[in-house]
Computed example of a mutant assay.
Amino acid sequence: MSPGTTNSSLLPIMRNEYSLDSVCCTRRTLHTFSHMWIVENFSSYLEDPEPIICLSSSPFSPVSGCSVATQWRLVCYPKGNYGASSNYMSIFLEYIKGERDIKAKAEYSLVNRKCELTEMRKDAQFSIYKCGNSRGFINYVKFDTLTLVENETLDDDKLKIYVRITIMDDAITEETKYQEFDDNESVNFTTRGFESLVKDFTQLLLQSTSKMSDIKIRVTVPYGDCNSDDSFESPVTFHAHKLILAARSPVFAAMFSNRTLENTTNTIDINDLHPNTIQSMLEYMYTGKVTDIKNSTVELYRCADKYQLEDLRSQAEMALMNSLSIDTSAEILLLADQHHSEDLKSRVIQFIVSGNLKAITQTDGWHRYVACTPDLVTEVIQATAIE
């Protein structure tokens, strides 16, 4: 044997063997909940002559966990709190009701007109909140940049503030049975599997061609006026898969289960919806989400109702509620009435009679969509009387 070498057979065999008679586990649960606060006519607060303006949201609470009885609220200073740098808006989270101290941290964002989270600021670590305490950012965002059109932060002069709060419970140690993988790891595997599935189906949609798919959707819409008889754009064709469409929509399932023209020719002709709407519908059917739902919300709602895509209809309905304005309310009211959405109709009528009636009845939308529908006019008048 040469110097410096070792015969491995002479080394003792190292074993990592042990026995377990019992196991305990220390757990700490984190509960996350969120809230969105919409401040209408936000620019009016920036133009107010008062140097310091304080706005407060309504109280909100966690929906689960040990802290469901606690109450919180957001506090906003549009032109800054005392001590804030010039031209900065301040934002705080206040713990307003609870019987014990809470360990929590918060993440603040603004929701722009594309429903994207912007200006994200979050606490670096957990803090102890005593009842009556508030924490946040004095210099949250420069308020003179919020009103710039190119930033797309304000949606019809509405500032949408989104907060996500994480509450840390006390640690608990208890005896448990030994497991190779804990529940959290199982959840992580499930989440990663779902994300991978969405990614793969996104690629399937993007790469669909006449060779890879078995159905094509041909969308033809008229130029300008939808009542035109002979001025049509060139058809836009989408390729898809019958099995996926049928699994997602009862309408497509019935279409492909019978000897319909669409099932025989492997072509679906659509002339009452625009290509962008069909593209958004396919994105939802393949991935469960729509990248920018606000681009065609009204028509996407009609599309979801037509093909009985209930979750997409609910998403579009929520987006419509958030986009209510003096200019859009008449069209949305007619849409809700035509598609028998009582929740959406009630929300629109409440918006109209809550101080906006005069302005809305003077819009082109009112005369185009509502004034010619006596039943809707009657409902608005009756609601006005109650109000």
Rank of each mutant, 00 (worst) to 15 (best):
A69Q: 10
F201K: 01
G4E: 12
I172G: 02
D305M: 05
P49F: 09
T297M: 06
L46F: 07
K345R: 12
R135A: 03
Q362W: 05
K211E: 14
E175A: 10
S210N: 11
R259I: 11
L10V: 06
R73S: 08
I91W: 00
A385H: 15
C24D: 15
E387L: 08
L335S: 01
R73Q: 13
A246C: 05
T6Q: 05
E379L: 12
I326A: 04
I215T: 06
N188S: 11
S346K: 13
M285A: 09
K306R: 11
D156L: 06
T5K: 13
F42H: 02
Y286I: 03
G136D: 00
Q125T: 10
G132E: 02
I128E: 01
D155Q: 12
L206G: 10
V370P: 01
I167F: 00
C115F: 14
K160L: 09
L74D: 00
L74G: 00
V149G: 06
T260K: 07
I326Q: 05
S2I: 10
W37F: 09
L300W: 03
D48E: 09
D269H: 09
I381G: 11
S186T: 14
I215K: 03
V236S: 02
V163G: 00
E379M: 13
T176S: 08
N81Q: 11
D311Q: 14
V39C: 09
L344K: 01
E150M: 05
I52M: 12
F33N: 02
K289P: 09
Q382G: 06
S280M: 12
P62I: 00
L110E: 03
K242M: 04
S354Y: 15
K358M: 10
